[in-house]
């Protein structure tokens, strides 16, 4: 145990965060501290929840680099259900709106995914069709509203342009970074989506703390991994730039003063501090309450 790890354990002893299972600090090209709690180890796989969204965003970036799609594409170009005029404003929704949670599609239920609309969508059997039937409440691009619908549509689009979103991300992102992931949950109409409705299926998107660090590292290194370009720095710049409707949000990446990162329900986090060449990762047991550990993400550790 090094001094920094010692410091973290001491801090945690008095921080009253019994759900936190791992804290990793990466700085100046190497892991500086790795602390595990509640029996977790460096090899333990842990649910990532909405960190999945940020990973999907990287997949969209790679597909754009390869010319398979463009963030300015209208959604109806890839999903025919949005070209049927079910709602007049469907034709205005772009891939970029989905990436910035501004599709304007009706959504109720806060940031949580145990919401009535999601439950109805799951029962419907055809997810994309269900979402295409929902009213467009706000003018696309004008109102930020964090919702699963936009992510589900993005996942459907990525599968549409690549053949299979999981295989694509596995080949183009996970394999080069040495990340292992089981095949994700697939909806009845073939849309990959994590977190899955059932606990067992959700374990498919589980990552180790070290793998989470690598996602942050890829962005910190402007998309280069071991000398090879994985995703363009153009895309990374756009993904981590404030979006018009919410300056704290980019392309499914969260932003703040001096940092950007991924957030998953219950304390799953990757926080990248580009100017300090630093990454902090946490993983925590999910409870019913939306816990967040700002004191840890931004601690001087």
């Amino acid at each position: 145990m090094n001094r920094r790890e010692d410091h973290i354990y001491q801090m945690m002893a008095s921080a009253h965060h019994p759900q936190i299972n791992s804290i990793v600090v990466w700085e100046d090209g190497e892991t500086k501290a790795e602390c595990f709690f509640n029996g977790y180890t460096a090899a333990s796989r842990h649910v990532i929840r909405s960190v999945f969204k940020s990973i999907l965003s990287v997949g969209i970036g790679i597909a754009q680099d390869e010319g398979l799609l463009n963030v300015r594409d209208s959604v109806k170009k890839h999903l025919p259900a949005f070209g049927e005029g079910r709602d007049m404003r469907h034709r205005l929704i772009t891939v970029e709106h989905l990436l910035t949670m501004t599709s304007g599609i009706f959504w109720q239920g806060g940031v949580h995914y145990h919401c009535p609309l999601m439950a109805a969508m799951r029962r419907s059997g055809s997810w994309v069709d269900y979402i295409a039937d929902c009213m467009v409440r706000d003018m696309p691009g004008t109102v930020y509203n964090y919702k699963e619908f936009d992510v589900i549509l993005l996942s459907a689009i990525l599968s549409k342009v690549t053949g299979d979103a999981f295989d694509y991300i596995n080949d183009k992102l996970f394999a080069p970074l040495g990340i292992h992931n089981d095949r994700w949950y697939k909806s009845p109409d073939g849309v990959y989506y994590c977190p899955a409705p059932e606990k067992e299926q959700e374990s498919a998107s589980a990552l180790t703390a070290g793998e989470m660090v690598r996602i942050g590292q890829l962005f910190l290194q402007q998309g280069i991994w071991n000398g090879r370009r994985i995703v363009s720095d153009d895309y990374i710049r756009s993904a981590t730039a404030p979006s018009p409707a919410n300056p704290g949000y980019g392309y499914l990446w969260w932003l703040g003063e001096g940092w950007y990162g991924c957030r998953g329900f219950g304390g799953q986090s990757v926080t990248v501090f580009p100017e300090r060449d630093r990454i902090v990762v946490t993983q925590a047991t999910v409870t019913d309450r939306p816990l967040s550990y700002e004191d840890v993400y931004f601690a001087d550790i």
Binding site: R86, F106, Q108, G109, C115, P116, L117, A119, A120, Y130, D133, C134, M135
Partner: peptide, 15 residues
């Protein structure tokens, strides 16, 4: 109720 409402017409039955 949000659980019962049709998401397309917001429970009105028409638009």
């Amino acid at each position: 109720s949000p659980k019962g409402m049709c998401p397309r017409c917001m429970g009105k039955g028409y638009y």
